[in-house]
Simulated scan of single mutants.
Amino acid sequence: MKRPLKPEELKVWSVVAGTVHPLPGRVVAAPPPSAEAIATETPARIPPPAPLRPKPPRVRGGVDEIEPNRHHRIARERDPIPARLDLHGYDQDRARAALEGFLRRAWDDGYRAVLVITGKGVQGDGILRRRAPEWLAAPHLAPMVAGISEAHRRHGGAGALYVALKRKPRG
């Protein structure tokens, strides 16, 4: 929100505005009110500032969302998605084991991003969809997982996750 100009600022502005001439065929804008006029006006009631939009919540407790620019590059496939894991039909135990093994292999191979397809579940609240972010936040996966985000619609939308992987340390 803009703050009102102080009287001394209005004086300077009126000097500057007086040196400007409109282009041919353009209308001259109304001059700003003088400092005296502003000083004598009764103060207008200033509306309260609009509430700030809260920061979107993290996808899960331990790992942040993927940075917006990187997410965009992955979604547009400017950063390749060399591996995909589809967890449809898995129970929780098999899905977790498959996910952890998949991530370890992808990280060992030097991949920087992968796609994990969880599915949405029957009513959009599937157990794998809810639990996968928790599994990815596990402490033993922290050296590998940089962040996760919901996938673009063409990659599965709400039923899939982009998982950004950290660089493997040289050694």
Rank of each mutant, 00 (worst) to 15 (best):
Y111M: 12
H88T: 10
I81Y: 01
E150H: 06
G110D: 07
I81E: 05
R76H: 14
L85W: 06
A37I: 03
A17H: 12
A132Q: 05
P33V: 11
Q92T: 12
A113N: 02
R84Q: 15
H71C: 08
S149H: 00
H72F: 15
D86M: 03
H21W: 10
P51Q: 08
H155Q: 02
Q123I: 10
G171A: 11
R105N: 09
N69L: 15
T19D: 14
F102D: 03
I38P: 01
I38D: 13
D79E: 09
L103C: 12
L128G: 03
H21Q: 15
G126S: 01
G159T: 01
I81S: 01
G156P: 06
R45Q: 15
S34I: 08
G147M: 04
L136M: 13
P54D: 13
G147Q: 01
A39Y: 01
A29R: 13
A29W: 01
P139F: 08
R94L: 06
R130I: 01
R73T: 12
I66P: 15
T40A: 14
E8G: 04
I81M: 07
W107H: 15
A95D: 03
A97Y: 04
P24S: 08
A29D: 14
G171I: 05
K6S: 14
D109K: 06
G124D: 10
G101H: 10
L87R: 12
L23C: 04
L87A: 07
A37T: 11
M144S: 11
A97R: 14
R112N: 08
P133A: 06
I117H: 07
G25Q: 05
T118V: 09
A44P: 07
V63C: 08
R104N: 10
Q123W: 11
T19F: 15
G156Y: 02
I66S: 08
W107A: 05
R170Y: 01
F102W: 02
E65R: 13
A44L: 09
